[in-house]
């Protein structure tokens, strides 16, 4: 096995005349927690969208475990085990919290096209869904509609749903954005716990979260890599300081 779980070579995305991601050569070590940071509009979400095929790259390659996945469909990439969360929370609002998780577990049964079968055939997944919900502290809301959860709990549910697929590579887009401080601490502990045996790439603005969790940091600015390395190395980088002061970021 190669040392890196994910590699991009010259990854580029142009929207019309505007290039949001420009020739990014990037690699994530297996089982690392890798942070992607940068000022607003740097192209972080776009980079995630390229990795998960929400957008099609206009140039470059994406390699996952040594396989070129640049031309695979979004669903096929997810089935390979690259699963993401979204910057704006993504749940199934009119389904119960438990059913949100069950939808992810369901793929394993291979009955997703079985329109003639009873929904009761899915109850074999209930225990596992509840276990995942207890794991993230949502068991008490299992029967509530996802739409009725608080913002922080919606994001937690999103992580539980993502974990249901047991993905080897997790892409988290600002998992703590907009959260109260105790929620942030809970998510931080959760990420540290689930990182065992997985690779995590996360976009994060909260530098205390980055400092505590991440072994490697990549700084993106105007679609290009500005700096890369450990937290200390990156925060000492004069270019990064300038970008963040210029970008008006704390």
């Amino acid at each position: 096995m190669a040392e890196h779980a994910l590699v991009t070579e010259g990854l580029t995305k142009a929207f019309g005349g505007f290039t949001a991601v420009r020739g990014v050569d990037f690699a994530v070590r297996r089982h690392a927690i890798h942070a992607l940071i940068g000022p607003n509009g740097a192209g972080k979400t776009t980079f995630f969208n390229l990795l998960t095929k929400v957008h099609t790259p206009t140039g470059g390659r994406i390699l996952y475990e040594g396989t070129d996945i640049t031309h695979e469909s979004a669903a096929a990439i997810a089935r390979r085990g690259i699963v993401r969360s979204f910057q704006i929370s993504a749940t199934f609002p009119h389904m119960s919290v438990r059913d949100n998780v069950r939808v992810a577990l369901q793929r394993r049964l291979g009955t997703q096209y079985a329109f003639w079968r009873s929904i009761r055939s899915l109850s074999v997944l209930d225990d596992e869904a509840m276990a995942l919900l207890s794991d993230v502290g949502l068991a008490d809301s299992a029967e509530a509609n996802a739409a009725d959860l608080s913002y922080g709990r919606k994001r937690t549910l999103e992580i539980a749903t993502t974990l249901a697929l047991d993905p080897p590579l997790l892409l988290l887009d600002e998992p703590t954005q907009g959260m109260a401080i105790d929620d942030v601490d809970r998510i931080k502990r959760l990420i540290r716990r689930i990182a065992v045996g997985r690779t995590i790439l996360m976009v994060e603005h909260n530098m205390s979260v980055v400092a505590d969790l991440c072994d490697t940091i990549t700084v993106l600015q105007r679609g290009e890599i500005l700096a890369q390395g450990s937290y200390d190395a990156v925060s000492a980088d004069p270019g990064v300081k300038a970008a963040y002061l210029g970008g008006g970021h704390a």
Partner: peptide, 13 residues
């Protein structure tokens, strides 16, 4: 049905 569950997921998000 199991299929109907995925349809609702597609409808929702």
């Amino acid at each position: 049905s199991p299929f109907g569950q995925i349809l609702q997921a597609v409808r929702d998000n």
